[in-house]
Simulated scan of single mutants.
Amino acid sequence: MTSSNTLTWQEESGTRTALWQADNGARQPSRIQVAKEMDADTAYRLASAGTGLLWRGDFQHARQLLQAMSARMDAAGQRKKKPTPSTAAESFEQHRKAQALRVRVLGQLLIEIDGNYGIPLKRSPDVVQACTEAWGPADGQARVVPLRSLLGLIGAHEWRKKGVPVATLNGAHIHPHYGVFSPVRGEYLDLVAQAPLPAALQHCPQAFDIGVGTGVLSALLARRGVPRVMATDLSERALACARDNLQRLDLLSKVELVQTDLYPAGNAALVVCNPPWLPAKPTSTLEQAVYDEDSAMLRGFLQGLTAHLCQGGEGWLILSDLAEHLGLRTRDQLMDWIANAGLKVLGRLETRPRHSKAQDPSDPLHAARAAEVTSLWRLGVG
């Protein structure tokens, strides 16, 4: 190990060096062991001790080994006696720790990708396009990546190719890019499609989409007849994704994309924001669409809203109450933030989740997920 971004190891050919690439937050291994064959028990033991297993055998065998290691980890977790959480917040913390441990241990099975995004292993897939989408054009620099992370990257490429059908866009597809949150939970889109547009759009014909992501909300607003949408995001990846989707939908002429933190300059009759729903610290780039540390984006949206609304305008906050059921934020806190920002609640539309985890009793957060409600809060100047 020579730096936080570089791996150095010894192999038959001598000393080798490559970039460390782990977008899912996996830690760099403390040491490297080259492996062509290995049984799952040995691999799991070494990975648990922090040894990175740089695979030089058949690629498909590596996938099978990863599955077997995962099964060993599940079995070990079932054998280990854990204290029963006394609160929902403790359940969430235990769940997060288990997720982090899985990333750390299973992230020790490693694949080298050459400087042209090739994998020099038997029966390896062609990952050139998937890597280019995630990391940009090949730069001649070899990388070492956890196999688990690589499989996620390949899966993201397939999602991008196929797209996600969105019923509120009459079945049109949204194509999420790697690292941009996919609109697979369509219930919140139903709320945006149903909410009455503010009359202020007649004299102030502009909406803001704060945190554009894939561009799905901007597309929905444009399809609903909003004359002009200004959509913001700090992430270049998200802005590129939104541009791609809006072009596909022939809506780019109605949406201006702006790279900024939260608000663009000016005012709007409608400001829509769907911040990450859980106030916890993201541990990787890929978690930033799910976790909003200290509710920073949520509070920033509320605090800046009155300064950016036209007369009679509305802010639409799309938010799940899952954080409340997990004991991470209270309803009173949310109402205080709304009031302290000089806002009042004009109305609220609600819907229940339709995703599979809400009906899965084996999910460690099932009680909270089963009680979850997603709301569109219509906010005005108080």
Rank of each mutant, 00 (worst) to 15 (best):
residue 2 T to G: 13
residue 4 S to N: 07
residue 9 W to V: 06
residue 9 W to S: 06
residue 11 E to F: 04
residue 13 S to T: 01
residue 17 T to E: 14
residue 18 A to G: 03
residue 20 W to F: 15
residue 22 A to L: 08
residue 32 I to M: 14
residue 33 Q to T: 11
residue 36 K to D: 08
residue 39 D to A: 06
residue 42 T to K: 12
residue 44 Y to P: 02
residue 48 S to C: 07
residue 57 G to L: 05
residue 58 D to G: 05
residue 59 F to M: 01
residue 63 R to M: 09
residue 64 Q to A: 13
residue 65 L to I: 02
residue 66 L to H: 04
residue 70 S to P: 01
residue 72 R to I: 00
residue 84 T to I: 04
residue 84 T to A: 15
residue 84 T to L: 14
residue 88 A to W: 05
residue 90 E to M: 14
residue 96 R to P: 01
residue 98 A to R: 13
residue 100 A to T: 02
residue 102 R to K: 15
residue 104 R to V: 02
residue 106 L to E: 14
residue 106 L to I: 03
residue 112 E to F: 10
residue 116 N to S: 12
residue 122 K to C: 03
residue 127 V to W: 07
residue 130 A to D: 07
residue 138 A to Y: 08
residue 139 D to F: 06
residue 145 V to A: 08
residue 145 V to G: 06
residue 158 E to Y: 04
residue 159 W to E: 12
residue 163 G to E: 08
residue 169 L to N: 09
residue 179 G to W: 10
residue 192 V to T: 10
residue 201 L to T: 09
residue 207 A to C: 05
residue 215 G to F: 06
residue 220 L to N: 06
residue 222 A to T: 05
residue 229 V to D: 10
residue 238 A to Q: 12
residue 252 L to H: 11
residue 260 T to G: 10
residue 261 D to G: 10
residue 269 A to R: 12
residue 271 V to A: 15
residue 272 V to T: 11
residue 275 P to G: 08
residue 282 P to F: 04
residue 287 E to M: 04
residue 290 V to A: 11
residue 295 S to Q: 05
residue 298 L to M: 12
residue 301 F to Y: 15
residue 311 Q to N: 05
residue 316 W to T: 02
residue 327 G to Y: 02
residue 330 T to Q: 10
residue 334 L to Y: 12
residue 336 D to N: 13
residue 342 G to I: 00
residue 344 K to F: 09
residue 348 R to C: 14
residue 353 P to K: 13
residue 358 A to L: 04
residue 377 W to N: 07
residue 378 R to L: 12
residue 379 L to H: 07
